[in-house]
């Protein structure tokens, strides 16, 4: 079970959180004028890397806030958690 640092509440056990999948997927502004293929990419296509991954998490059994995290999918190292709107951190080299 991971130890996840909520940007508002501090480090808490994973069982208080819910993962919301890949982060930084922009909702197309002009959706009505983009192709089905492009819209399908927005709706369905997600990265599944072995390595660093930007993710959305919700502190569901805590403050109920959403935030982003940079997590390594193989080691589970969480390099950073940050508030929505904050600049995303670079993955370590």
């Amino acid at each position: 079970m991971l130890l996840i640092t909520c940007p508002w509440c501090g480090p808490r056990a994973e069982l208080e959180f819910r993962c919301g999948g890949e982060a930084h997927i922009a909702r197309p502004a002009d959706a009505m004028n983009i192709s089905d293929a492009d819209y399908a990419r927005y709706l369905f296509m997600r990265k599944n890397p072995k390595g660093w991954h930007y993710e959305r998490w919700n502190h569901a059994a805590g403050c109920r806030r959403w935030f982003n995290a940079l997590r390594h999918t193989a080691t589970h190292e969480i390099r950073a958690t940050y508030k929505p709107g904050d600049r995303k951190p670079e993955p370590p080299r």
């Binding site: 819910r18 919301g20 909702r27 959305r56 919700n58 569901a60 109920r64 806030r65 959403w66 929505p84």
Partner: peptide, 10 residues
């Protein structure tokens, strides 16, 4: 949860 997500993230 979905409504909170939209308000907080979108």
């Amino acid at each position: 949860m979905w409504l909170e997500d939209l308000l907080q993230m979108e």
